[in-house]
Design a protein around this nucleic acid. Structure first.
Length: 194
DNA sequence: TGCCTGATTGCCT
DNA sequence: GGCAATCAGGCAA
């Protein structure tokens, strides 16, 4: 089901390209021996200085520091004071670009996901950035984690090529730079948000 | 210091 | 469709 963990080289590419390449990969989370995994079906790229919708466009703060930590790191933040969102950092250290993971197709550990998500229907387990972090048990403790090496509890893995085309469109849920085509989805997937 | 906004979600009418 | 929950950052005073 899920292949080898992605190495550093996978993340060393332009952020938009990385956002597209992550579609179809499998995100795996492990906690106390329990494996939970899903196929990535929706991502959004957030750039640096020229992107006013990006947390990093005004430079580092205590909250967004790990967004500048270099390729292959995790950036997790608290959204609306309520939900956690997971990003994969891209670009060299100090630049501040990242890919937001917005939706997964659940593949493994469905029982754990259902327990964490409080009995919603399966379609909604990971359909949305706040939902997928809850289903995978992710929180601020995962902020700054190296997804390529080190003490692992979370990592993206290789997978067979996506069964369908990847389509690009405008990002959702933002009020600035809405016109930029930086959202990537797996065509026809019922697991995509919105 | 105080007020507004936000890469969201789920409950209410 | 409306809106509350809940908190960090940005900005004005």
């Amino acid at each position: 089901m899920s292949g080898r963990r992605l190495g550093r080289g996978f993340f060393r590419r332009p952020t938009e390209e990385l956002a597209r390449a992550l579609i179809g990969c499998v995100l795996v989370a492990r906690e106390r021996g329990r494996i939970v995994a899903g196929r990535i079906v929706e991502t959004e790229a957030y750039l640096s200085a020229g992107d006013p919708a990006s947390h990093s466009h005004r430079g580092p703060t205590d909250r967004n520091r790990s967004m500048f930590a270099g390729p292959g790191r995790a950036y997790v933040y608290l959204s609306y004071g309520v939900h956690h969102c997971l990003n994969v950092v891209s670009g060299p250290a100090g630049v501040g670009e990242a890919v937001l993971l917005r939706a997964l197709e659940p593949l493994e550990g469905l029982e754990v996901m259902r327990a964490r998500r409080g009995g919603v229907r399966d379609r909604d387990l990971c359909r949305g950035p706040g939902r997928l972090t809850q289903a995978l048990g992710l929180n601020l403790e995962h902020d700054g984690l190296d997804l390529c090496r080190g003490p692992l509890g979370l990592w993206p893995a290789e997978a067979p090529p996506p069964p369908a085309a990847v389509v690009v469109g405008p990002r959702v849920g933002i009020s600035k730079a809405m016109e930029l085509p930086l959202r990537f989805t797996l065509a026809g997937s019922r697991w995509v948000s919105r």
